[in-house]
Computed example of a mutant assay.
Amino acid sequence: MAERMYLYDDTVQTNTRFVSFMGENARFDLAIIVSDRYYGKKLVLDIQGGRFAIIGQDDLDEPGYLEEAYNLNEEDAEELRSFLYEIV
């Protein structure tokens, strides 16, 4: 058996916030993970959709970023973006 080559294997402390809210058309069930790993950005997991993204202010300002990352239409992405602006 070949020896496993690790690129990294770290254990870090994190803060995780679980939040669920209802938008006009969609429910959002999120886990928001904060650590020193992502240069001030947050790891945002869509629990029901099985998608995640590393998000900072610059990502929220990027057109189409949330739509692509979470497979959302424009209206649902705008509701998520509005929430994330409050916490990023």
Rank of each mutant, 00 (worst) to 15 (best):
D29N: 09
R81Y: 13
I32S: 06
A69V: 09
Y70R: 03
E86W: 04
R27K: 14
F83K: 08
D10V: 11
D61A: 11
Y65K: 05
Y38K: 06
L45E: 05
I55Y: 09
M22I: 06
V19G: 00
T16P: 02
Y38D: 11
N71G: 08
R37K: 15
E74Y: 13
E62F: 07
T14K: 09
S20D: 03
A26M: 15
Y39M: 10
R27Y: 06
Y85V: 02
E79H: 14
V34A: 14
L66Y: 03
S82H: 14
L66Q: 00
E68Y: 02
E78F: 07
F18V: 11
L30N: 06
A77Y: 03
E78A: 10
Q48E: 10
I54N: 00
Q13A: 12
A31H: 07
F21C: 09
A53T: 00
V12G: 09
T16I: 15
Y39T: 01
L7C: 06
I32K: 07
V88E: 08
Q57T: 07
R51I: 04
V12W: 10
S35Q: 08
E3V: 14
V12K: 06
A31D: 04
Y8L: 13
T14M: 11
L43I: 05
E62K: 13
G50C: 10
M22H: 13
E3A: 15
D61L: 10
Y70H: 04
I54R: 10
M1L: 04
R51W: 02
G64W: 12
G40W: 10
L7I: 15
T16G: 05
F52D: 05
A69I: 02
N15G: 04
E74N: 02
G50M: 05
K42S: 03
E3F: 12
G23P: 05
T14I: 08
K41V: 05
K41I: 00
D59F: 00
I47F: 03
R37M: 13
F21K: 12
Y6K: 03
D10T: 14
Y65D: 05
L43Y: 05
V88T: 15
L7D: 09
I47E: 01
Y65G: 04
G23N: 09
K42R: 15
Y65W: 08
I33E: 03
K42N: 06
I87Q: 11
D29M: 02
L45T: 01
E67L: 01
R51E: 01
F28H: 07
N71E: 15
G50F: 02
I33D: 02
N15S: 11
E67N: 09
T14R: 05
E79V: 11
E67I: 03
G49C: 01
D10I: 14
T16V: 15
E3D: 15
F28T: 03
M5E: 13
T11F: 09
S82I: 06
N25C: 06
A2T: 13
G49D: 05
G49M: 10
M5S: 14
N25Y: 12
D29G: 03
L80V: 08
D58G: 09
L7G: 07
Y65L: 04
L66I: 03
K41C: 13
R27T: 10
I33L: 04
R51L: 11
N71K: 13
D76L: 04
A31E: 11
